[in-house]
Design a protein around this nucleic acid. Structure first.
Lengths: 147, 147
DNA sequence: TTTCGATGGTTACAAATGAAACCAGTTTGG
DNA sequence: CCAAACTGGTTTCATTTGTAACCATCGAAA
């Protein structure tokens, strides 16, 4: 364990990134192959499916996306007629976004697939390992938030 | 807990990605601000600093990068004269990469910063939480490998 | 009210990325 | 020996991304 050497394999930021990248890449096949969605588009669909109605800003907060990603994802889903925008009564800068029937149908089709994916991933771990990853992730999330 | 709803906040692929993204973004400030490096460039520097000499293919495996990323990162570090290529004796397709004195000096400068970053992140967790994240990440890595 | 700083959201531009084609050079099988 | 398949690595092209500038609109303060 040389002090002046960094072992990438043990370096947490690297391991986290590689892990997330691998998982996300595999999962993305589900929405990419089936519907040609990008990740921001999937998150938009997912966020609106879950919450019903949100503004672009709220969507960005809920799904950790930069406003430009949100803007472009929303534009594309609108083009597909999977969502609609309704202008806010009081503030004309704001639009309320909601899924259309078609968008909602797609969302409903994806949810079980997403859950199955997560389930199969976790199924490969032991009970203690499952507890560990969930606990550890939550702890890091907390640490970063209150930073 | 509606069965036909996916809660993004609890969905492991999303949480992992967001976590890795946040951590990686913060860490990247260290090498971006100091030396204007991209992530692939940083990983190349780090990989060669750790191992001494590698081919581009080995580097890609060690640091989980697509070959095009490796190619471009190597080209840039070579341009800065932080690494050199030595043609292989037996196989003329292969080049052995190694850091120059300057490259190595930069690497040595970065190592303590990287370790400090990781240390400060982990320091915000309790002992059990630290164990949990390390254990959980290792478990998921294993699960994905043997898939 | 007018002005000025924030805020919601879009757009323009440059840089980073991924897929696939590509160019050696190398190995294998006939 | 030679063609075909393969491998290490680079390049091209289209897509995605991030930053910053931008265009409304809004709210607060003068």
């Amino acid at each position: 364990m040389e002090p002046d050497i960094l072992e990438l394999e043990r370096f947490l930021p690297y391991r986290l990134y590689r892990l997330a990248d691998t998982v996300s890449r595999e999962f993305s096949r589900i929405y990419k192959e089936r519907h040609g969605l990008t990740r921001p588009e999937w998150r938009t669909l997912s966020g609106l499916g879950e919450r019903g109605t949100m503004t672009a800003t709220e969507l960005g907060e809920q799904s950790a996306m930069h406003k430009t990603k949100v803007s472009r994802a929303v534009a594309e889903l609108e083009r597909r007629r999977w969502l609609t925008r309704t202008p806010d009564e009081n503030d004309r800068r704001v639009e309320h976004l909601a899924l259309t029937k078609t968008g909602l149908a797609t969302y409903r089709e994806m949810v079980p697939l997403a859950k199955a994916f997560e389930g199969e991933l976790l199924a490969r771990l032991s009970d203690e390992e499952r507890v560990a990853i969930v606990r550890g992730v939550a702890a890091l999330e907390g640490a970063l938030e209150r930073k």
